[in-house]
Simulated assay, not measured.
Amino acid sequence: MTIHLNDLALFVRTAACGSFTKAAREANLLPGQVSAAILRLERDLAIRLFARSTRSLRLTDEGERYLPYARDVIALLHSGREELRRSDETLSGTLQIAAPSDFGRNILLPWLTSFRRQHPGLELRVQFSDHVTDVFRDPVDIALRYGSVEDASFVALPVAPDNRRVLVAAPAYLADHGAPDTLDELPQHACLLWHINGRLYDKWGFPTPQGRRTVQVKGPLASDDADVVRRWAIAGEGIAYKSWLDVRDDVQAGRLAVVLPEQPGESAPLQLICPHRRQFSPAVQQLHALLAERCAALGVPP
């Protein structure tokens, strides 16, 4: 049995995209080429990886079981290639990075500092802001961004695909005001809000067995800086709905407690955004590998 690595990579990409068309667009191929690659792989494996219909594409049970092994093979080859590049190439030039304020200041900054020390020929230019950076117009090479990226003109690499938002509050706030027992009680609490470009994000979404549920919340404090919202939460000013990556250290240190821990928060995957594939320089590739490794070590939300 001979398995072509390109076919294996297209299988992993198609499983992530849920569509031959989307996978082809990301790989700069035609949908028919992706379909042919999957058919070759199915023939080589003698199993059916996808159940196809005119309206949907989903993994079969065999495809679900095979996917983790395919990912491991691709990741291992990627790691080997990066190791060769780390040993053979000296990173140089300037890398301009944009990232969300809270994650940037409190998580990313020391990682970037360490990365720069390992590559003294590299210059970093960083900007931390919650305003969405336009990677085509703004002076950045890459941007880190929470949430799914629907724009097919971007190239998005997963950094923390399993990240979610969590409800958190300081123990002092919960001692004074009590903890909500259900989502229905959230509007009775002081909620710490985020706003940007004149829009106040006071409707919090949660996945439930019945579908996505939106809760209208309110509170006297709002900021366009997510780091400020986190600091207000630590100070006991109310309940915040934050990315797990942003509050993990505070929760583990006891500065914040997870509220309604049995209620999952909405997905907030962290992605590395690049405007063009030609900007996948060795510096970007090595930084992406580092960030994905560090974020994976932080674990998933409770």
Rank of each mutant, 00 (worst) to 15 (best):
I74T: 06
I38E: 03
R71I: 13
L91K: 03
S35P: 02
L108D: 01
A46G: 10
L59F: 11
S87R: 15
G104I: 00
G93I: 04
T113Q: 12
A75R: 15
L41W: 05
R48V: 08
R85T: 11
S56V: 02
T60I: 03
R43Q: 14
R55I: 00
I74G: 00
R105K: 13
R86W: 04
R81G: 01
P100W: 02
R25M: 08
Q33H: 12
D72H: 15
T54S: 14
L41D: 00
A98H: 15
R86M: 02
I47C: 07
R81Y: 04
L95W: 04
E26H: 12
F11V: 01
A51T: 12
L112G: 04
A27D: 07
Q118S: 15
R105Y: 11
R85C: 05
S56M: 06
R55T: 08
A46F: 06
F11D: 00
L112I: 10
R40H: 11
E42T: 07
A9K: 13
A46W: 05
T54G: 12
L67W: 12
F115L: 07
E82G: 09
A37E: 02
F115K: 08
L30C: 09
F115H: 09
F50I: 03
L77V: 13
H78V: 05
E83M: 13
A37P: 05
Y69S: 15
E42N: 12
R55W: 00
I38P: 00
A23F: 06
Y66R: 12
F103M: 06
A98N: 10
H78S: 13
Y66C: 06
S79Y: 08
L109P: 01
A9V: 11
R117Q: 13
A16D: 14
I47L: 14
S87M: 11
G80V: 02
S35T: 12
R116W: 08
L57M: 09
G104Q: 02
L45K: 02
R55Q: 00
G93Q: 09
E64W: 08
H78M: 01
T113S: 11
G18F: 07
E82N: 12
A98Q: 06
L76Q: 10
E82A: 09
